[in-house]
Design a protein around this nucleic acid. Structure first.
Length: 655
DNA sequence: CAGTGAGCGAGCTTCCGCTTGACTT
């Protein structure tokens, strides 16, 4: 009897081997490391996968991109390809003498499919292997033992639902990416991509851009008073924003007449400032982008730190430390590090009551440091990311900050003014995380106290448009809309940049990105909105519950896609002109003086003059039945070694 | 005369979601 235990990743395989063998396992290499031991008289082998080991791809006939075969691509059956050959070979080698296979991948939809992919490979070599599913959400000893004494069947329907998602994503992505790229003449490196997650994400950026364009600033007035007493106090009029100038002027005028400001209310209280919650992926990325790191880069560094054993698994939704996390021992492990002084301080505390975030998931613990590190050992940004994770952990276990809040209300000539103070009495967690605010002195006031109004000011301000998304904010917005997952959102954001759809630290949509998003909003049907993901989610739930078949869902999706393709084909010329104009690949500049055709400006191969220069006709040439005029710009910069003007753009006259 | 560009033809390229290597001295 031989039992094969299949884990989703190497670290999980090692953990399973440790627990199930009681530490007596041996390593064997068959391309990848397999852990082997005997338990209850049964030979065990544990193998770690690398997530999905099978990927979908279209048959050879569809390798070339052609507009003509897109309709066929809509219905094309993708082939399965082993994307991890070493692991595939190892599974096949193990299959021969395996009697029982236990799927121990993550207990979710994708995990089920990952397990089934491995089972299928085993089945190619040996039929009749008994398949079992161990369900656990944490890799704690008790959970693992419990899962192995209560095996479940493999959930084929759940795996089928994930498989349907793969096929739907591939079909929509491949068909529409190819259509748009071919229609707009963007082959090769400069292709234009479309996808269920990336296109609605791009649409979020476009939507923000439209809000900014449509924004009309509204003026308002803020009336403040400088009050002289034992200290100088700045108080703001009870009407935070006056929307009418005459009302602000009137309030200012009445206050200016007053000789005295009376304290009508004063209240001070001690408050305990709340601590930040433990890091999940989204919060981590939001903070990392605030440090100026691209989300994809921050994630790449976090993954590297995880592999080096310095931090816990960085892909998690959870914001509550599990009970199994012992804060004191976690801190002990950081003693040998360049943050040892802070660690020693925290270890002096009697007990720990970590903060809790809004999401309590069971996928993985929140991100926290698992070992100490030295600055020299981590280059540049790696140290910044590590320090961020460590300090966030400190902040979640450190004492609360003690603050003193005070509010005063003043009567100045019948107008009420307010002043507020917040003083950090004891910094608590703020000592370890972020910039702690300095001390402020809260004045001692009592009702009836009198101060002298030294100056009443009336300042005109304007409402401001919403700001553009940072990468972190976009990732938060994606999460709120259900777009992407903790493992993929940063990659999607990066993709938006890589395609040239957006630029800048505050993400500004390029003309090209906007044209792509708008063309898809107009003709792309479901793919342009977040609803496609929501619909797909519920369809997957129905497949998993047995209410619908995967084949049925897939067929329906392909029908929708075919209709979208037809719609886009019908507007091919318009879409092409729209996008190409936006990309300045081709800009219509009116009629040509000599040929009476429509002049279309094309970017010359090496032309890089950003402004559109005045043009002069040079002479017609011929190409493919179209008459083409080459036009030189007199303003073109001469090449340093060549005194004739450089041809920067062509004008093509479409005959 | 050196550098540029037209014209021709071949080759390039996708979705989203899971997840990471490691030879020897």
């Amino acid at each position: 009897m031989r039992r094969l235990v299949i884990a989703e990743k190497g670290s999980a395989a090692l953990r399973l081997a440790v627990v199930l063998s009681g530490g007596t396992f041996k390593r064997r290499r068959i391309g990848v490391t397999v852990f082997e031991f005997s338990r209850d008289g049964i030979d065990h082998s544990v193998i770690g996968l690398r997530g999905h080991i099978v990927e979908l791809d279209y048959p050879e006939a569809f390798r070339g991109w052609e507009l003509a075969n897109l309709d066929a691509l809509v219905g094309a059956e993708p082939l399965e390809k082993v994307s991890e050959p070493l692991i595939g070979d190892a599974l096949r080698a193990l299959a021969a003498d395996t009697d029982e296979a236990w799927v121990c991948t993550d207990f979710d939809r994708e995990g089920e499919l990952i397990g089934v992919e491995a089972l299928r490979l085993l089945g190619q070599v040996r039929s009749g292997i008994t398949a079992k599913r161990a369900r656990f959400s944490a890799l704690a000893r008790a959970d693992i033992e419990d899962a192995f004494s209560h095996p479940a069947p493999v959930d084929e329907a759940l795996a089928a639902s994930a498989r349907a998602r793969e096929e739907i994503d591939l079909a929509w992505g491949a068909v529409l990416t190819r259509f748009l790229s071919l229609a707009c003449g963007r082959r090769g490196r400069d292709f234009l991509s479309v996808g269920r997650v990336q296109t609605p994400t791009l649409a979020l950026l476009v939507e923000r851009e439209r809000e900014i364009e449509a924004f009309v600033p509204v003026p308002y007035w803020v009336v403040t008073a400088r009050l002289e007493g034992e200290t100088t106090i700045t108080a703001t009029h009870g009407t935070d924003r006056f929307w009418r100038r005459d009302e602000a002027d009137a309030a200012q005028g009445r206050a200016e007449l007053a000789e005295t400001a009376y304290v009508t209310e004063f209240a001070a209280r001690s408050v305990e400032g709340h601590r930040p919650p433990p890091f999940n992926t989204t919060m981590f990325l939001a903070e990392a982008t605030r440090l100026g790191l691209a989300a994809a880069r921050a994630m790449q560094i976090a993954e590297d730190l995880y592999r080096r054993g310095l931090i816990s698994y960085p892909r998690t939704d959870n914001t509550v430390y599990p009970p199994s996390l012992n804060v004191r021992s976690a801190l002990e492990r950081l003693r040998e590090s360049d943050l040892a002084a802070e660690v020693a301080e925290l270890l002096a505390l009697e007990s720990f009551h970590p903060s809790r975030g809004p999401i309590q998931a069971t996928d993985h613990p929140p991100i926290y440091p698992t070992a100490g590190a030295r600055h020299e050992a981590l280059k540049g940004d790696a140290w910044r990311v590590y320090e961020l994770v460590v300090r966030r952990f400190f902040a979640t276990v450190a004492p609360l900050a003690q603050e003193r809040d005070a509010v005063a209300e003043f009567d100045i000539g019948g107008e009420s003014f307010f002043a507020r103070w917040r003083d950090l009495v004891d910094p608590g967690w703020r000592k370890y995380y972020g910039a702690a605010p300095g001390r402020t002195s809260v004045p001692t006031l009592a009702v009836g106290d009198q101060l002298r109004p030294a100056e009443i000011t009336n300042e005109r301000r304007e409402t401001e448009p919403p700001s553009r998304y940072s990468q972190g904010e976009l990732i938060e917005a994606m999460e709120a809309k259900g777009l992407g997952t903790k493992s993929t959102r940063h990659e999607i954001v990066q993709k938006v940049y890589d395609r040239g759809y957006a630029e800048g630290r505050r993400m500004r949509v390029t003309a090209a990105g906007r044209a792509v998003a708008e063309a898809l909003e107009a003709y792309g049907g479901a793919v342009a909105g977040a609803e496609m993901t929501a619909t797909l989610e519920s369809a997957m739930d129905r497949i998993a519950s047995g209410e619908r078949s995967a084949a049925d869902v897939l067929k329906e999706s392909r029908t929708l896609l075919a209709a979208v393709l037809t719609e886009m084909r019908g507007h091919e010329a318009g879409i092409a002109r729209w996008v190409r104009t936006a990309m300045a690949d081709e800009v219509e500049v009116g009629p040509c003086e000599k040929c009476a055709g429509t002049m279309v400006l094309r970017r010359a191969r090496n032309g890089d003059v950003p402004e559109l220069p005045p043009l002069a006709h040079v002479g017609p040439r011929r190409a493919d039945g179209r008459s083409v005029c080459t036009v030189r710009s007199p303003q073109a910069r001469p090449s340093p070694s060549w005194d004739r003007p450089r041809l920067v753009r062509d004008a093509v006259v479409l005959g």
